[in-house]
Write a protein that binds this DNA or RNA. Structure first.
Length: 559
DNA sequence: AATTTCAGCAACCGCGATGAA
DNA sequence: TTTCATCGCGGTTGCTGAAAT
C-alpha cells in the first residue's frame, strides 16, 4: 500500500501553480515577515526548486531557501524534504529483511535514536526507520508477539551480564540495559495477592531488580517486548465502552456479584495500593533507582509502545523506561545471583518501617519502589489484614490511614470474592472452566511467542505475519533457551505450582477481573492468567496480565 | 455499493543543542 | 555571559488508499 506519489499529486496541482507562486491557499501556514509559508505535501515544482537551490548553494542555511528561491516553505520544512526525499542516494521502497533485522538490532542497542540508526542504514532516513518501527510495534502488539525477538533479548541480557561482570557501562551498552528494562516484569495485582498464600512456601525472594510499579502502572501496554497487547488507548476505550455493559453504570451485575462501582473501587484501591510502597531497602532517594512515583503524565511510551532506550531514567524526568531501574547492577543477574531470603527481607521491612508515613495516596512516594518491596509489603499487608480482620478499625491508630484503608479495602474485596465460594463469575464461567477453556500455553515450554494470543483470542486479533527477519523457529528456540534467565521462571515455575492457595486466589481474582473487563477483554485476560498458572511461562501473566490491569484501572479514565 | 476501519507514510511541531553575535 | 538564530532529533498528527464490514 503506497501513498499516491508526489508526482501524480503534483500533476493535479501544477495547473494551479502556473499562477500561484507555489502557495496553496488551503495550506498556508506560518507567517514570517508577512510571507505566508505553505504547509502540507510538497509538489514536484517545489521539489525542483529546492533541488536546484541545494545544487547551487549546498545544504544548510535552510531558512535562506525561501529568501533566495522564492519557495514558500520554512527552512525546517525544506530541510526535512531534502533529507527525507530529495537528497541523492536515498533508497526507495520497503525495507529488506536484512534491513529489518538490522533495525531491530539497532533499536535494541540504541532505543529510539532514529538518526543514529539511520546512519547504519545507508539510503534510509530516520523518519523511515521511525515509521517502520512504530508500525512494527503496532503489528506486534496486535499479534501478541514480542517486540524484540528473544535472540536479541538474550544477546542483550548476556551482554548486560558481561557488562556487569566487567563493571563497565559504556554509552552504547546502556541501550542493552534499556532493552532489558523494556523487558519489564510486569506483575498484576493478582500476583501480589497470591504471594500471601505462597509466602510460606516461598523459599526465596529472588533478588529482583527494582521495578517501578508506578511506571508499570503508567506505562501502559506494550513497553515490554514480551507484553504485546493492543495499545492501551484502545484498551481504555474498550474498557470505557465495556462499562456500558452494565446498565446504570454502578448497578449490580446480577447473581449477587457486587456492583461494578464497588468492584471498580476495590480494584482501584488494590492497584493503587500495590504501588504505594516506600522501600526500607531503598530508602535513599538518591539511590540507584531514583525514579520517583507520582509523575503521572509524561510517559510517551504509550504511543510508541517501547520505551526510549536512550538513557537511564532518573527522577521524574521521563517515565518511559518501564521498570528495571538498576541497569548497572542486577540486570544481568537473573537466575545467577543468590537470591535474598524472603524472611530476611521481610524482617528487614518490618524492622525498618517505611519512613515518613509511607503510603502516599497519590502514589508519589518520596522513596523508590521496587517489585521486591511491593511484594514484601503486599505480603505484610495481607498477612496483617488477615490476622486482624476482625479488628480493622482499631488498627487505624497504629498505621497510616492509607495503609489501613487499603487493607480494609483489600479485605472487603477478598471477603467478597471469597464469599462467592466457588469462583464462578456472573457470566457463569468458573475459574476452572476458564483455565480449561483457555490453556494455550502448554507445560512443555511453549511460550507466548510460539503461540501468540492472536490465535487464542476469540477471533478479534489478526494473526501476525511472520517477521521476515526473525522466523518463528528462531523465536521458539531462543525463547526456550531464554526461559530460565527470565525472572518469571523464578516467580512461577516452582513455588507457584506448589501453592494451591495461589491458584485459588488467582482464579478468583482472574475471574473477577475478567468480569470487570467485559466479554471481549475477559477472554484476553483469562487466557493470560491461565497461561501463567498452567505453565512455567509466568511471563504471560506477568506482562500481559499486568497490562490488563492498567486497562482496568486507568484511574484517570474512570468516570 | 457505501461506509467504516486500518495501515502506511509524509509532514509538522516542540524542544534541546549548538554556535555566532 | 547572554541572547538569538539555526539545526537536528524525536514525537505526533493528518492524509490517503486498501481492506473489512
Amino acid at each position: 500500500m503506497t501513498r499516491k506519489t508526489d508526482e501524480s499529486e503534483d500533476e493535479m496541482l501544477s495547473t494551479d501553480q502556473a499562477e500561484s507562486p507555489l502557495i496553496n491557499e488551503s495550506n498556508e501556514g506560518s507567517y514570517g515577515e508577512g510571507v505566508v509559508m505553505k504547509k502540507g505535501p510538497w509538489t514536484s515544482a517545489e521539489d525542483s526548486i529546492l533541488v536546484d537551490y541545494v545544487k547551487k548553494h549546498g545544504e544548510g542555511n535552510w531558512n535562506a531557501v525561501q529568501k533566495h528561491s522564492g519557495l514558500f516553505r520554512c527552512g525546517k520544512s525544506c530541510r526535512l524534504r531534502w533529507a527525507n526525499h530529495l537528497r541523492p542516494n536515498l533508497k526507495k521502497g520497503s525495507f529488506t529483511a536484512e534491513e529489518e533485522r538490522l533495525i531491530i538490532e539497532l533499536h535494541a542497542k540504541m532505543g529510539n535514536k532514529w538518526a543514529q540508526m539511520a546512519a547504519h542504514l545507508p539510503g534510509r532516513t530516520d523518519n523511515e526507520i521511525k515509521n517502520y518501527w512504530n508500525t512494527r510495534i503496532k503489528r506486534r502488539q496486535r499479534a501478541g508477539l514480542p517486540l524484540y525477538p528473544p535472540e536479541v533479548c538474550l544477546q542483550a541480557l548476556q551482554e548486560s551480564q558481561h557488562d556487569q561482570n566487567t563493571g563497565g557501562v559504556n554509552g552504547e551498552d546502556r541501550g542493552h540495559h534499556d532493552l532489558l528494562q523494556t523487558n519489564s516484569f510486569e506483575i498484576p495485582d493478582v500476583m501480589f495477592d497470591s504471594l500471601t498464600t505462597n509466602q510460606g512456601i516461598l523459599p526465596y525472594v529472588p533478588e529482583l531488580p527494582d521495578i517501578s510499579a508506578s511506571n508499570m502502572l503508567l506505562k501502559g501496554v506494550g513497553s515490554s517486548p514480551y507484553c504485546t497487547l493492543p495499545p492501551i488507548l484502545t484498551r481504555q476505550k474498550r474498557f470505557r465502552e465495556s462499562t456500558d455493559l452494565f446498565p446504570g453504570s454502578g448497578g449490580s451485575f446480577g447473581n449477587g456479584f457486587h456492583s461494578f462501582e464497588q468492584f471498580r473501587d476495590d480494584t482501584r484501591h488494590k492497584v493503587a495500593r500495590s504501588f504505594r510502597f516506600s522501600s526500607p531497602l531503598d530508602s535513599d532517594p538518591t539511590a540507584k533507582n531514583s525514579l520517583s512515583f507520582g509523575v503521572i503524565q509524561g510517559s510517551h511510551s504509550l504511543s510508541n509502545g517501547n520505551s526510549s532506550a536512550s538513557e537511564p531514567t532518573y527522577g521524574a524526568l521521563k517515565l518511559e523506561l518501564p521498570s528495571l531501574q538498576y541497569p548497572e547492577t542486577d540486570l544481568g543477574s537473573w537466575g545467577t545471583s543468590l537470591p535474598r531470603p524472603l524472611l530476611e527481607s521481610v524482617d528487614a521491612f518490618i524492622q525498618s518501617p517505611p519512613p515518613g508515613g509511607t503510603f502516599e495516596t497519590d502514589c508519589s512516594s518520596p522513596c523508590n519502589s521496587g517489585l521486591l518491596d511491593a511484594l514484601l509489603h503486599e505480603a505484610k499487608t495481607l498477612r496483617s489484614a488477615k490476622n486482624h480482620s476482625s479488628d480493622k478499625s482499631s488498627n487505624s491508630s497504629s498505621a497510616t490511614p492509607g495503609d489501613v484503608a487499603d487493607s480494609s479495602t483489600l479485605n472487603i474485596c477478598e471477603t467478597e470474592l471469597e464469599d462467592c465460594g466457588d469462583p464462578i463469575s456472573p457470566y457463569g464461567h468458573s475459574a476452572t472452566s476458564i483455565f480449561s477453556e483457555c490453556t494455550p500455553i502448554s507445560a512443555s515450554g511453549s511460550s507466548l511467542d510460539e503461540k501468540p494470543p492472536a490465535e487464542t483470542f476469540t477471533g478479534v486479533v489478526k494473526s501476525e505475519p511472520v517477521d521476515p527477519a526473525w522466523t518463528l523457529d528462531m523465536e521458539i528456540e531462543s525463547t526456550t533457551r531464554f526461559n530460565y534467565t527470565r525472572p518469571d521462571a523464578l516467580l512461577s515455575a516452582d513455588w507457584l505450582q506448589q501453592g494451591s492457595g495461589y491458584i485459588k486466589d488467582q482464579s478468583i481474582m482472574t475471574d473477577a477481573i475478567a468480569t470487570l473487563l467485559g466479554d471481549d477483554l475477559a477472554s484476553d485476560y483469562k487466557y493470560i492468567a491461565s497461561g501463567t498458572s498452567n505453565s512455567s511461562q509466568g511471563w504471560g501473566l506477568n506482562s500481559c496480565g499486568w497490562n490488563n490491569m492498567p486497562a482496568v484501572c486507568q484511574m484517570s479514565d474512570l468516570p
